[in-house]
């Protein structure tokens, strides 16, 4: 498995897209800091970008990579290697390379602009951690889709819809539900609904970390009570990990049964 992971990883490291992705974050980081000069404000802007972009890139990259390396995968399948090793190895390879592009690409400019002198260092690292976790989650979802559908067009289409669902549609439905039931106490519902969407969960975690929670009035305080405690933080990190582990298990199960 390590060997396959290594292979996928180096393969991607050599690929143009990884560089473009890396350079994009590098440029983004420098431009943000150049325009703002203020690390804390740059972190807030980054939040908006990361929670939308990392899932999108993760899904598209995942699907694309899977389809492109299909022939090679089939070659590997002919060898005496466990199927789960092949797919999990590939999955980890791509997730790691995407996360690396993100962490290094954003890390360099922020280090250059004196992150260590800033109080935002903890927030910045939690932002990177969450960005990396989102990459892992959405690559796993993309792999699942690609495993289920041999048709490229279908796979791509569904991958984009998945992203769209979590990034936009889910929040829309969420908002409409809350507006329809606004006669009822909604705190718990809102908490629950956030948990089931990794993007929402990441967003709330970072918003509360950036300490604007107290600016959100009464309801903000309710969320702060949950997410602000170490239990809440731990709980949400566990949930995010579950969002990685469950799709990964699905990959393993599906790949075992799939007829290539």
């Amino acid at each position: 498995m390590i060997k396959i992971l290594k292979y996928s990883f180096y393969d991607l490291m050599r690929s143009r897209w990884s560089y473009i992705y890396f350079l994009f974050y590098l440029a983004l980081g420098f431009i943000l800091l150049f325009l703002n000069q203020d690390v804390s404000k740059a972190v807030i802007t980054l939040l908006n970008i990361i929670i939308v972009l990392t899932p999108l890139i993760g899904t598209l990259f995942g699907v694309m990579y899977f389809y492109n390396s299909k022939e090679f995968t089939e070659l590997l399948l002919a060898q005496p290697i466990k199927r789960s090793n092949i797919f999990v190895g590939q999955y980890l390879g791509i997730s790691l390379s995407l996360s690396l592009s993100l962490v290094v690409g954003l890390g360099i400019p922020f280090l250059a602009y004196g992150l260590f002198q800033s109080a935002e260092i903890f927030n910045f690292f939690s932002l990177l951690l969450i960005g990396a976790m989102l990459s892992f989650i959405f690559v796993a979802l993309a792999f699942n889709l690609a495993l289920y559908f041999d048709d490229k067009i279908k796979g791509f289409g569904l991958a984009i819809i998945t992203w769209l669902f979590f990034a936009v549609i889910y929040d829309g439905l969420f908002l409409i539900t809350m507006l329809m039931f606004d006669d009822y106490p909604l705190d718990k519902f809102a908490l629950g609904a956030t948990i089931f969407n990794p993007i929402d969960l990441s967003r709330i975690l970072i918003i509360l970390k950036l300490d604007i929670s107290a600016l959100l009035g009464y309801t903000g305080a309710v969320f702060q009570d949950f997410f602000g405690t170490s239990f809440g933080l731990f709980f949400s990190l566990v949930l995010l990990s579950l969002w990685i582990i469950l799709p990964l298990l699905l990959i393993v199960v599906k790949s075992k049964r799939k007829d290539f």
Binding site: L47, N48, I51, V52, A167, V168, I169, D171, G172, F174, L175, M178, L179, D182, L186, D187, F189, A190, L191, T194, D200, R203, I204, I207, L216, G217, Y218, T219, G220, F223
Partner: peptide, 20 residues
């Protein structure tokens, strides 16, 4: 305006949908 009506919706602050 939405948050005034239903304060709990504040949880969607900075969401892409809200921007839209």
């Amino acid at each position: 305006y939405v948050v005034n009506r239903t304060p709990e919706t504040i949880i969607l602050l900075r969401s892409l949908f809200v921007d839209i």
